[in-house]
């Protein structure tokens, strides 16, 4: 299992490096901008004059004078969608991308069970997401030592925990969809649409209380973003992680049941879980 985990991590290294660099630099820039933002009266005034609907959509833009509000408005509110691109694409392609290329056909003839292959790869992706989160965290924490943003390293870490849970959940969703839909690209697209749809729904729910009930049934409702620096809802975090695990578990069960395809062998239609379970 370790061989597959290590190999998958190496294969993801380019994406991990790119996203870590991007998020790290973005975090660094936003952290360094904190003192300036506090002193920019024009900025405060401009935000104060934003339509209340807009402020509500982005979940409290008027709170940017606090570290939590600032981090949430300029960073964490949009991060599920931005970093979600990585999570969704990597999740959807974790197994079926190799299957479509014909690579999985060879790997699965080695003495590694489908269960081990599945979880080793998912574990590698989880670690990859965690590395990206750490890069983002360092980008906030290290420059904060020279700014007036007086937060502990743990406080900086908490919103990244909630972000990690959300990203893992959507990666698991994309993985599950890839087990059902006929193509990796379709699975990634649908998972991406669901992610963006959830993001918009949360924003709309801030404007329309009637949507709150629906929003509460979606993952991003339990994403605290930057406000987690002031205290994290551990039950929400646990819930997101549990949902991610359940989605991954459903994907795993489908992976056990599926025929591994090779190009031209048969049509690539919608696959439903009706076949026997592979114990391998």
């Amino acid at each position: 299992m370790f061989a597959e985990f290590k190999h998958m991590l190496l294969r993801l290294r380019g994406q991990i490096f790119g996203w870590s660099l991007g998020l790290g630099l973005f975090s660094l820039f936003m952290a360094l901008f904190w003192d300036t933002a506090l002193q920019m009266e024009g900025l405060q005034e401009m935000i104060a004059n934003y339509p209340p609907e807009m402020a509500a959509f982005f979940g409290g833009m008027n709170a940017i004078t606090s570290p939590a509000g600032y981090m949430n408005t300029y960073y964490f509110s949009m991060m599920p969608v931005i970093a979600g691109v990585f999570a969704v694409i990597a999740g959807a392609g974790l197994l079926t991308a190799d299957e479509e290329k014909g690579i999985l056909d060879l790997v699965l003839t080695y003495p590694i069970s489908r269960t081990r292959l599945f979880w080793a790869r998912l574990l590698a992706l989880s670690l990859g997401l965690a590395i990206v989160m750490v890069a983002g965290w360092l980008g906030w924490y290290l420059p904060s030592l020279g700014t007036s943003m007086d937060l502990s390293p743990v406080a900086f870490l908490l919103p990244f925990l909630t972000l990690f849970a959300v990203l893992l959940l959507f990666a698991a969703l994309a993985l599950l969809l890839s087990m059902v839909l006929p193509a990796t690209r379709l699975a990634a697209t649908l998972a991406g649409v669901l992610l963006v749809g959830n993001y918009l729904l949360i924003g709309m729910a801030n404007l329309n209380e009637g949507l709150q009930t629906v929003a509460q049934a979606t993952p991003l409702h339990y994403y605290q973003g930057g406000f987690a620096v002031a205290g994290i809802e551990w039950s929400w975090l646990a819930g997101l992680l549990a949902a991610a695990f359940l989605l991954a578990g459903a994907g795993w069960l489908l992976f056990l049941r599926r025929d591994i395809r090779v190009g031209g062998e048969r049509s690539w239609g919608l696959r439903l879980p009706f076949a026997g379970v592979h114990t391998g």
């Binding site: 060879l106 003839t109 003495p111 069970s113 391998g280």
Partner: peptide, 22 residues
Amino acid sequence: PQVDPVTVRRRTGYLPGELSLE
């Protein structure tokens, strides 16, 4: 092989007809 695929694969060498490599 449906009951114990890993043991079968441990003792088997396979060359696919449509060989795809990384």
